[in-house]
Every structure is written in C-alpha cells, then in structure tokens.
Amino acid sequence: MVNPTEIIPGVLFYSYLSAMRKDKVAFLEHTTLVLQVSGRFTMETASEKISMEKGQMLLIHRNQLGELTKTPLDGEEYQTIVICLKEDLLRKIALDEQIEIGNKYDGPPNILIPKNDFLHAFFQSVIPYVHHPNEQITNAMGILKVKEAVYLLINMMPELKNFLFDFSEPYKMDLEKFMHSNFHFNIPVEKFARLTGRSLAGFKRDFQKIFGMAPRHWLQEKRLTEARRLIEKRNKKPSAIYLDLGFESLAHFSYSFKKKFGKAPTEWILEPGSSLI
C-alpha cells in the first residue's frame, strides 16, 4: 500500500482520504489483508481488476504490481484498515502451529473474503489503535494482531493455508511477456528481477539477450514510444499520461520526449485530420 498512516510499525496501517486518489505504482511485496471501512478500493494488475466497497475484505498475495484507486462514495470519506502479513511472522506462526508448508500456491492472487462475524469483530478491535495512533504500541502487540488475523482466516477458510504459507520464490517466468505487460510501473530494476524469479545479474543477462539493450534503456524507450502513440493516435494530453507511463515528473517526461523525438510532447499533438507521415 502507498503512504497510509502507520499505526503499528510494519503491521497495521490506516488510510483516510476525502478525495479520489490513484496510486499508479504499488509493489505489493507482502501478503496483505484489507478491510474496506468506507468508499471503494480498486486494484488493477496486468491480469485482473478487482474492487470492493464498505464492509468487504480482500486478501492480496505477495509480490504483485498494481494500480490502486481509492474513491470516496456517498458523501463519506474513503477509509481502509490494512494488516500486513509479513513472511517472517507467517513463518513463525507456521512453526508454532506445526503447519506443514506445501507446494507453491497457484490459485487466484487476490481473494475477496466472505463476511464473517469473527473477522468483523477482529477489525472492530483494531479501531482503537486507529483512533489513538500516538499511543505507544509494542512490537509484541503487532505480532499478536497478525496471529489473530491469520488464525481467523484459516479457521474460516482452511484452503487459505497454501495461500498464506507459500514461502517459495517466484518461478522464472516469461521475461519478454512480463515486461511488455508491466513496463509502465515505475519500480527499481531490482524489483522487476525479483518479480520474474531472477537474481539481478540473471535478469540483466536474460534481458540483454531478449531485448538487445539494458533494462533502464529499454524501459525509457518503451515508455516514450507508448507516450507518442497515445498522444498521436488517441489525442492524450501529456499531463494526463506521464505518471501512468512511469515518469516521476512532467518536466522529466517532456525533456526525455523532446530529446528522443525532436519536439516537445505538447507540439506533437495533431490537429484533426492532419498526419505526421
């Protein structure tokens, strides 16, 4: 999740917004449980789009890239409570409870959790921490809240054991397909490597073989080419696309675009019926 308020360090987060916000780059490194208190939460990855509204819960598998849209509804502010289920804590639970770690999980990466009185009561118990964020909370309390959430989940849905206790590394996946689907996410090359199941050195080596250039160079070229297509073919404004294509600022995007194509992106917008050919 991006920039929520941290209630219990590294474990419990709270997001509160009065206007819509879109976070283009979200590297969801840890397995995460989200309760939607109010408003609508939408997550879009390369393979799916999933939404939830007030009272719904979503379990998100680790190691994903996604675009998050947070939208207030019906005059209410947007509010979510997020529990981060980090691998070290899940491993400790698996050892404490003698839970056998099975094969790599290959089911859906994001699961809407059915309504459940016990989970609802659990999140109600979390609200005091949200309302009193300045109170001193020990690390032990954070671990207890994670354990409670995990026990409730596997008690309600035993099949989630494979989801929660999958500690395997990502399989080495099709690098070319993955990069064409995810080039617009502005994350470090190291994270691209991890998500494709490679070491950084292996990622760079495979990338050079497939694309004939270094990852950073290819990403820049791919993003600029896509920007030109969107401006030329779909009449998109530069200010509306630069963030979605992984550029950190409009100034950087405009400079890079002009350097590659000889004109600023605002000069590239065509009048109806005109052509660059």
Rank of each mutant, 00 (worst) to 15 (best):
N3D: 07
T5K: 09
I8T: 04
A19S: 14
R21F: 03
F27I: 15
E29W: 05
H30R: 08
Q36C: 15
S38W: 05
E44S: 14
S51Q: 13
K54C: 11
L58G: 08
E67Y: 06
P72I: 10
L85I: 07
K86V: 14
K86D: 14
E87F: 00
L90A: 06
R91F: 11
K92M: 09
L95D: 13
D96P: 00
E100G: 14
G102W: 01
N103D: 13
K104F: 02
P109I: 01
P114H: 01
K115I: 02
N116E: 13
H120D: 15
F123H: 07
Q124I: 10
V126D: 03
V130R: 07
H131Y: 12
H132K: 06
E135C: 03
I137R: 12
G142H: 05
V146S: 04
K147Q: 08
E148N: 04
L164K: 01
E169D: 13
Y171H: 08
D174A: 12
H180R: 14
H180K: 14
N186W: 03
P188S: 11
L195Y: 01
G197V: 09
R198L: 10
R198K: 12
A201H: 11
A201Q: 11
D206H: 08
Q208H: 08
G212S: 09
M213G: 00
A214Q: 10
R216V: 10
R223C: 06
K233Q: 15
K237L: 14
S239V: 07
L245M: 03
F247A: 05
Y255I: 14
K260Y: 04
K263S: 10
W268G: 00
E271F: 09
E271D: 07
G273D: 02
S275G: 01
S275D: 09
